[in-house]
């Protein structure tokens, strides 16, 4: 008995509702961009500067009392959230206190942290500060810049690589798919106001890698079939290629999702946002490589004569054996 997520032979027409999917994706992209513009992102201190203090106590968290205690200090915008996690013990009550970067201070003030800790200690005597992180506005500005550069650089690098290994149409299709994935991921972070920090940038870059991974496997098959079926209409050829690789696509996405879901549930709250970004990215990444990348490839058309291998055609690697 074998587990088969996808039957041996599939003949799904992925382009029958192609317009619908492209429209859906376009709508989602507009919604994501709109949400990000209107609601903004819930930037963490990495990008906005400020201080976060993670507290732990045996007593239940009373956000109102915490707020009253710190409110007198006149520190401007303060956010207090209680953190829940299935891995916490019964006497672990965790809260995150976030204080904005203080006006006119280039570096981090130890006094502010000490004041806040003392104030909280006054309300909850057994409170412990398990982590305190401060980032000055100077560094956070640079971190934003570096993050943007990293994402753009990653996209350019893979665009170049795909163009080198395939044809430019493939590169455009692949990059369109991965921009789609990144925009939708940022959109989700905006809609649910999940904290967006440095780790999320790492997740975005992983999505770049994964989304391409999927797209490249499909494109590799397209390239092979272009040589094999010289007369087949491009639309049918793309359909055959996607169907042939479907089983693999589902299988790999499946194992990756299984692993990530284990991490979401059991990995603790510190990296939950990060893992969530990757999980979501893999779902949209799989979707986009099947529906979006190939739709764009179909629209752009490709060079059909692959009989004479040129420098840019594949299989340069084919003579490696174990």
């Amino acid at each position: 008995m074998r587990l088969k997520l996808v039957p041996d032979e599939t003949k799904i027409d992925f382009f029958r509702r192609s317009r619908l999917f492209v429209l859906l994706s376009a709508l989602l992209i507009v919604a994501s961009v709109g949400a990000t513009l209107v609601m903004g992102l819930n930037f963490g201190i990495d990008f906005r500067g400020g201080t976060t203090i993670r507290t732990e106590s045996a007593q239940p968290v009373d956000i109102g009392a915490y707020r009253d205690a710190i409110g007198d200090l006149g520190l401007g915008d303060i956010t207090i959230t209680e953190v829940f996690d299935p891995t916490f013990g019964a006497d672990q009550n965790v809260a995150m206190v976030r204080i904005q970067a203080q006006e006119g201070e280039e570096s981090v003030s130890a006094q502010v942290v000490a004041d806040v800790e003392a104030a909280l200690q006054g309300v909850v005597p057994d409170i412990r500060f398990v982590s305190v992180e401060s980032v000055g506005p100077k560094v956070s500005g640079e971190l934003i810049q570096t993050a943007v550069i990293a994402v753009v650089l990653a996209i350019m690098a893979v665009l170049f690589y795909i163009w080198l290994r395939f044809e430019w149409q493939f590169a455009v299709g692949a990059v369109a798919a991965l921009v789609h994935d990144i925009v939708l991921t940022i959109g989700v972070f905006s809609v649910f106001q999940i904290r967006f920090d440095l780790a999320i940038i790492a997740a975005l870059l992983t999505i770049v890698g994964y989304s391409l991974n999927d797209t490249v496997v499909v494109f590799d098959r397209v390239r092979e079939n272009l040589r094999k079926f010289k007369q087949m209409p491009l639309k049918d050829l793309l359909n055959v290629s996607i169907n042939e690789t479907l089983s693999r696509t589902v299988m790999t996405s499946g194992t990756t999702l299984i692993a990530l879901i284990a991490l979401i549930v059991l990995g603790g709250d510190v990296i939950r946002g990060f893992v969530f970004a990757m999980t979501w990215g893999i779902i949209v990444g799989t979707y986009s490589s099947v529906f979006i990348a190939s739709a764009i490839l179909l629209r752009l058309g490709v060079k059909r004569d692959w009989s004479k291998p040129t420098d840019t055609t594949g299989n340069q690697f084919a003579n490696i054996d174990a």
Binding site: A154, A157, V158, Y161, I162, R165, L205, T206, V208, G209, Y210, L212, N213, D214, V216, V217, D220, R221, G314, N315, Q316, F317, A318
Partner: peptide, 13 residues
């Protein structure tokens, strides 16, 4: 070729 292409792109990132 599929394995190498797919992994090289991830490795670049």
């Amino acid at each position: 070729s599929a394995i190498l292409d797919a992994n090289i792109t991830t490795f670049i990132t």
